[in-house]
């Protein structure tokens, strides 16, 4: 080795032309290919966080309603969420039916069994012929707390439905938001009656 000059950034041999070369084309192509590959490799890392197969498979719950008297309510679990089922009294049904939809903060039914644009009438919040029964996801649409109103001694808010203790949202006897920061009515899950006393949720 005759030449013993140490290599520094200052004397490194560099391409001396500003013209695009075949090497530049290869550099851009390889860089683009690597970027696309990195983006593809990122996808499984992000998608793995979505609900997994075991979470998706817990899709239905069957509930026996025979023992729930008018004025009573039960809470069951579906997909890790509480489902409120209330056997409403005639007075509660009348209060919910008499209210014009225009007076509601959220005019949509939020019922998974109906089209998205269905209005939040009491008919659209329940099932025809089974008006005493209200089946809904018992989660406040504000920040996900569980409203009070299921147990006999609970404060049910000014509208006789449910009251969220976290930030004061109030729901009526059809689970529609009437007051407070909640933006939507409590959601109705997909459900179907299997018989007079049996309902399948999910």
């Amino acid at each position: 080795m005759a030449d013993t000059t140490p290599i520094t950034p200052a004397n490194m041999p560099l391409p001396d032309s500003d013209e695009p070369t075949r090497r530049d084309v290869i550099m851009v192509a390889a860089g683009g290919f690597a970027a696309a590959g990195a983006a593809l490799a990122l996808w499984p890392l992000l998608d793995q966080m979505n609900p997994d197969q075991s979470a998706l498979s817990l899709a239905t719950t069957e509930v026996d309603l025979a023992h729930v008297e008018p004025g009573q309510a039960v809470t069951v679990m579906w997909r890790g969420k509480p489902i409120f089922i209330r056997h409403r009294t005639d007075a509660e049904i009348a209060a919910a039916q008499d209210l014009p939809v225009d007076d509601l903060p959220d005019p949509l039914a939020r019922n998974a069994n109906l089209p998205d644009n269905a209005l939040a009438t009491d008919e659209n919040r329940t099932t025809k012929g089974r008006e005493p029964w209200l089946v809904m996801i018992g989660i406040c649409t504000h920040l996900g707390c569980i409203p009070k109103g299921q147990a006999v001694g609970d404060y049910k808010g000014e509208y006789g439905g449910w009251f969220c203790p976290c930030h004061g949202s109030q729901y009526d006897t059809a689970g529609r938001v009437r007051k407070g920061p909640a933006p939507q009515n409590m959601a109705i899950p997909p459900y179907a009656y299997l018989s007079d006393t049996k309902v399948k949720i999910g």
Binding site: M49, N50, P51, D52, A55, R79, G80, K81
Partner: peptide, 11 residues
């Protein structure tokens, strides 16, 4: 996506 489910739980 954050929960990895339909409610806060194990995931």
């Amino acid at each position: 996506w954050i929960w990895g489910g339909f409610a806060v739980g194990g995931p």
